[in-house]
């Protein structure tokens, strides 16, 4: 048995339950308010804890990039059981795109010297869906995306990878980057003890300069893209909403007949 050190990339995002807002100046998502752990990342955290446990030891380290030194989401993941966190927070990062973010995450991940790096397939708020693979390329690591099952044996990660037609069994030597779907494991709820313990777990806060990155490589400048307009999409014409009084099925039959589907 080898101890497994796992890094989980986690994003702290505005509460998806609240109505989203765009910054009127930059048209980027307004992230100035309180942030929480992206629910999509709870799966990676849980998976990491289970893999470290199965390996008989090792640590789970969180890596996150967030504005304003935000730690609330990190505390949630620490309360689940992660040992420590690296947070990259710097005003120079505002407006970063997926590739800039990947550069920052790669530089931070490198410090933790992990055996395995986990991330979600995409974030809930930005859902670009390329950041983990871009990071893997920068780290010079292989990657397996869309894992619905992850096992480690003899320095190799075995993954069931979702495909358009079903799934593939994929093997990959460590270290590697794996992105997990929401079906991979059932995340635990932090216990009271976990929440208390999380308060004193170390969070190493770094700047762009600490990582040895040039500020022009990241943030709005490094993104090399701009949003030129945001408009309301053409709304669908309001339909007919009726309460089923035993005639719901009949209403549907009539509708399908009208469309000549039946």
């Amino acid at each position: 048995m080898h101890a497994m050190n796992v890094v989980v990339c986690v994003k702290q995002i505005p509460d998806p339950a609240a109505p989203p807002a765009l910054d009127p100046g930059t048209h980027t998502l307004d992230r100035s308010g309180k942030l929480i752990l992206d629910d999509s990342d709870a799966y990676g955290v849980e998976m990491a804890l289970q893999l470290a446990d199965a390996a008989g030891g090792g640590e789970v380290t969180l890596v996150s990039m967030a504005p304003n030194g935000e730690v609330s989401g990190l505390r949630t993941a620490l309360a689940m059981g992660a040992a420590k966190a690296i947070l990259v927070s710097d005003d120079a990062l505002a407006g970063s795109d997926a590739l800039s973010t990947a550069k920052v995450l790669a530089a931070a991940v490198r410090r933790a010297e992990p055996d395995l790096v986990l991330a979600a397939t995409e974030s809930t708020d930005g859902y670009t869906g390329t950041t983990p693979v871009q990071m893997a390329e920068l780290l010079g690591m292989p990657s397996v995306t869309f894992a619905k099952k992850v096992e480690i044996a003899d320095g190799t990660v075995k993954v069931e990878r979702q495909t358009e037609a079903g799934y593939d069994e994929v093997t990959c030597p460590l270290p590697a980057v794996v992105t997990v779907t929401a079906g991979v494991v059932e995340p635990r709820y932090p216990s009271f003890k976990g929440i208390m313990a999380a308060k004193s777990k170390p969070v190493d806060t770094l700047t762009v300069a600490d990582l040895g990155l040039d500020p022009s490589e990241v943030g709005a400048t490094g993104s090399r893209q701009e949003i030129t307009s945001v408009t309301e999409a053409e709304a669908r014409q309001a339909g007919e909403i009726v309460t089923d009084e035993g005639d719901g099925a009949e209403r549907i039959v009539q509708f399908l007949e009208q469309l000549k589907v039946i």
Partner: peptide
């Protein structure tokens, strides 16, 4: 925007140091 399409785009973006727009 398939599983493999996203992988290739992400890898290429980092390799060529070019940003990518998705969705």
């Amino acid at each position: 925007a398939t599983y493999d399409g996203r992988d290739v785009a992400g890898r290429l973006s980092a390799r060529l140091d070019l940003p990518v727009l998705t969705n």
